[in-house]
Design a protein around this nucleic acid. Structure first.
Lengths: 200, 200
DNA sequence: TGTACATCAGTGAACGCGCGTTCACTGATGTAC
DNA sequence: TGTACATCAGTGAACGCGCGTTCACTGATGTAC
């Protein structure tokens, strides 16, 4: 991506900043992202990022929003296809969710933590997170209609399901779970327990 | 607590440092704890804390360990008494766990997050967290024996249960859940779904 | 009981550092005529 | 097509700040004799 000719104007610095910040987050966590470092990594002056983002927080918000976009895309991507049963579809979503978190731990932390970013101040971020939840609610509602799970309030059911996968993802990311445990087995046991608990 | 006479020697500065750091965390999050501020809040010089902790991380570790001690105590405290059924006992633990997190959000975050504290370097912290898990496993094993839940690997079951309550606690703390939602209802729905899913 | 002295919990001033951000500027670009 | 000029993405030096931590020190304490 940095293979454009070295012109004075970068070309698409804004996008590169978001991308590079995400890379830095992967490598060293959110704390390792500094405006100074990101400039120099992109071969650009320290002040250049301020042409595109008013301050550091704005950049981090953009990074988090981009994370939600990717996660959203992944959850919608149909590994099992529309052909899978309702239960399979939900199970698939849960698995992909946790896998995303495991593959992008620091990014995931940025998306959901309030350590680096105060949530209420950033409507775009709020909206990006909300879209994910609405998608889950939609799937749950659909599959309630197919009669495979209990017909409780779909929003509440979504929160319960989300809690379970978010909790598992967090505990794994924060290395609270014995590294000898078989993650796949634990993941499928979690989704299974959840689906059993939601069943009529 | 600061009502001892103003002597040159503080009396029990170490304990006060931990206590005060915990208070600051409650007020402004872990990032608001600085060695400078904590000294001045206790009416002591900036350098004084270094008599008791080699560095800031050591102090934060002590605070986190203290948090685990309190949480542990709370989970063991029998709201329902030993008289409650197995299921009631587990439900009670789940509820107390989430309530602790809601009452001490920043402290909880410090205990389980790796943002402020890298976990592997601090065996005492690791051990404090481990003790909590072992307690949960013990309760689950006991109640498997009473035949009220499925006889799966108790450690795996503990991880699943822990994931659910940790996830719920985290989402609530990070304000990812619609504030209009009835927290108590959501909490009991979560524990209920979990127990249903674990039932034989 | 009184004194000498080792110990250790405090002081206060200073250090160096890395950070986010600002400022006056300059080079490149694209558009009006 | 050629030129004047507004626009805007960059530069590089500097700012002020708050931080963790160190250092030589001093005051209080407790213990040996």
């Amino acid at each position: 991506m940095a293979e454009r000719a070295r012109t004075y104007h970068h070309g698409d610095l804004r996008a590169s900043l978001v991308e590079e910040a995400a890379a830095m987050i992967s490598e060293g966590g959110a704390a390792s992202v500094t405006m100074r470092a990101i400039g120099s990594r992109l071969g650009v002056s320290r002040a250049a990022p301020y042409r595109h983002f008013p301050d550091k927080t704005a950049l981090l918000v953009a990074v988090a929003v981009e994370g939600f976009r990717r996660l959203n895309q992944r959850l919608r991507g149909d590994g099992t296809g529309a052909s899978g049963s309702s239960v399979e579809r939900l199970r698939h979503m849960g698995e992909q969710y946790v896998r995303f978190a495991l593959e992008n731990p620091a990014h995931y932390r940025l998306m959901y933590g309030r350590e680096a970013l105060a949530r209420q101040d950033h409507p775009e971020l709020r909206q990006a997170a909300g879209a994910l939840l609405e998608h889950l609610i939609g799937v749950i509602r659909l599959h309630q209609q197919r009669g495979e799970i209990e017909r409780a309030d779909p929003r509440a059911q979504a929160y319960v399901a989300w809690s379970a996968v978010h909790g598992l993802a967090s505990l794994l990311i924060e290395r609270q779970i014995d590294p000898n445990v078989d993650v796949n087995a634990l993941l499928s046991q979690t989704t299974q327990t959840l689906l059993d608990g939601m069943r009529d």
